[in-house]
């Protein structure tokens, strides 16, 4: 558990969240080399690592809470890592889509997305290819001094989203989502 205490994660205050989905758009574009407009024209599907959810009369977001990481233990291809700053990260390039992490996650925070594939030319049946995605707090946008710039936090118009290491928020976030 000591590792978990140090991990950073995203918390969205349901009192402030308006459910506008701006964080999803920001997440999806910040994890892509396309901006929204060029992605539309190129037919590229953008994938968010978070999801706006409604609970009773409130809205919040659902994403990985950077826990003890059973996903990391489950991964057979060593593409899930615990970064020094306290973020569990999937190397999306190397992910083979085996879904073991997806099954290991206790909080349904990993999404398996089918990747677009060209039709095989040898007449064989097209095999579905998946990749695992989850919140990495925009690790790739981190400053050299370890300051994180998570796109969802920057995009939130009501400042409902924050980065925290306070584990009481982790409990709060999970209990909001029914865990």
């Amino acid at each position: 558990m000591s590792d978990v205490i140090d991990n950073v994660f995203i918390y969205t205050d349901p009192e402030r969240c308006m459910g506008c989905h701006s964080c999803e758009l920001a997440c999806a574009t910040s994890h892509s080399s396309y901006d929204f407009h060029s992605a539309v024209l190129a037919g590229v599907v953008l994938i968010p690592r978070n999801k706006v959810i409604a609970i009773k009369n409130q809205t919040t977001t659902s994403q990985c809470v950077q826990c003890e990481a059973p996903c990391l233990d489950a991964c057979t291809s060593d593409c899930i890592t615990r970064e020094a700053v306290g973020v569990i990260k999937i190397d999306e390039e190397d992910c083979i889509g085996c879904k073991l992490c997806f099954k290991a996650c206790p909080y349904d925070s990993i999404t398996m997305v089918e990747m677009p594939q060209e039709e095989p030319t040898d007449g064989k049946k097209k095999r579905k290819k998946f990749k695992a995605f989850k919140c990495d707090l925009c690790f790739d946008r981190m400053d050299t001094d370890g300051t994180l710039h998570s796109a969802c936090v920057e995009a939130c118009p009501t400042d409902a989203i924050m980065i925290t290491r306070d584990s009481s928020y982790r409990t709060k976030s999970l209990s909001l989502r029914g865990y």
Partner: peptide, 8 residues
């Protein structure tokens, strides 16, 4: 930030 749904 301005709302992504309005923007689109």
């Amino acid at each position: 930030p301005q709302c992504g749904f309005g923007e689109t």
